[in-house]
Design a protein around this nucleic acid. Structure first.
Length: 259
DNA sequence: GTTCTAGAAC
DNA sequence: GTTCTAGAAC
C-alpha cells in the first residue's frame, strides 16, 4: 500500500483480545466495535470489519464504502455490510441497556456510514440521537450526523441499494465518487427534530440540550404512568418534572478512537 | 479527523 | 470587545 496504515486499519488487523478494554466495546469473528475517540453524542461507537486471512477482502478493498462496492464483489459486499449491521445492533442493545441504567429511559440510536469518511478503513457509526457532546464543535460535525440531510447514510438505506437494478446501484456508487455529498456539510444548521434553524453552533447546541431534556421528561413521565397502571387517572396524575443529566456527568464512558 | 488562529460577525 | 467560523497545517 502506498500510504501508512491509519489507526483504524491497525486495529482491524490486530486480534481483538490484544486491544485495551478502554478501546474495545465488543467484537465478533468478523468485526470490532470500538469507542469513538471524539464522540459526537452521549454514545458513539464504530464497528470495523476485521482484516484477517479469511475475511474475503483486502485492506484496500475495505478502505471505504466506495472501494468495497466498486470491486465487482457485490454479493460478498452485501454480506459484509449485513454482518456489520448485525454487530452494530448488538452494540445498540448494549447502549440501550446503559441508557436505562444511567438515565432511566432509552432513546434512538442510529446506525450508518458517512458518505465521505475522513479516516481510511470502513467504519459503521453507532450513535445516540441526542448529538450532545463536547466533541461536536463544528457545523460539519453536526451535519455529518443529521439523519435526514443525506450525508449520514443509514445502513438500511445502503443495503437497499443492493435490491435495486444495477443501473441504480451504479448511480449510488457514482454519487459517492463525485463528492456530491460534501456540500451538504455546509448546509444551514437545522434541528433534526423540529427543523428550527440556527445561525451559530453554540445556539444549536443549547437547543439540542433542551430537546434532550424535553425528551427525557416525556419518556420518564410515560414510564411512571405505566408503572402506576392507573391510566384512568390521566392528566391529573402529575409527577414533578425530571432533572436533566448534567453535561459534566455525560462523558463517563472512556473513548479512544475516532472518525 | 484535530488544533490553531485571523478576521468576520455580532 | 467578544464570539464564532473557516481555512491552513498537521
Amino acid at each position: 500500500m502506498m500510504f501508512d496504515l491509519t489507526i483504524l486499519q491497525k486495529y482491524a488487523k490486530r486480534s481483538p483480545s490484544s486491544l485495551p478494554p478502554t478501546l474495545l466495546l465488543t467484537n465478533s469473528e468478523t468485526s470490532l466495535t470500538i469507542f469513538d475517540k471524539y464522540p459526537k453524542a452521549t454514545y458513539h461507537f464504530l464497528v470495523l470489519p476485521r482484516i484477517t486471512a479469511d475475511s474475503g477482502f483486502t485492506a484496500d478493498e475495505l478502505e471505504n464504502l466506495q472501494t468495497l462496492l466498486a470491486r465487482g464483489k457485490k454479493a460478498e459486499a452485501r454480506g459484509l455490510i449485513e454482518g456489520l449491521k448485525k454487530d452494530a445492533q448488538t452494540a445498540k442493545e448494549m447502549v440501550e441497556k446503559e441508557m436505562l441504567k444511567r438515565h432511566g429511559y432509552k432513546w434512538d440510536v442510529w446506525i450508518g456510514f458517512h458518505a465521505v469518511p475522513s479516516l481510511t478503513h470502513l467504519h459503521l457509526h453507532v450513535i445516540s440521537s441526542d448529538l450532545c457532546s463536547p466533541s461536536l464543535k463544528h457545523k460539519k460535525h453536526y451535519n455529518s450526523f443529521h439523519p435526514n440531510l443525506g450525508f449520514f447514510l443509514h445502513v438500511d438505506e445502503v443495503l437497499a441499494w443492493f435490491g435495486q437494478d444495477s443501473a441504480s446501484f451504479d448511480q449510488q456508487l457514482m454519487s459517492l465518487q463525485n463528492n456530491l455529498h460534501e456540500p451538504l456539510l455546509k448546509e444551514d444548521l437545522a434541528c433534526w427534530r423540529c427543523r428550527e434553524t440556527f445561525k451559530a453552533m453554540p445556539k444549536l447546541k443549547e437547543h439540542l440540550v433542551r430537546e434532550k431534556g424535553a425528551e427525557a421528561s416525556r419518556e420518564k413521565k410515560s414510564l411512571q404512568g405505566k408503572k402506576r397502571k392507573r391510566p384512568e387517572e390521566g392528566e391529573t396524575g402529575r409527577t414533578e418534572s425530571d432533572r436533566e443529566v448534567p453535561s459534566s456527568k455525560r462523558q463517563a464512558v472512556t473513548n479512544d478512537v475516532d472518525t
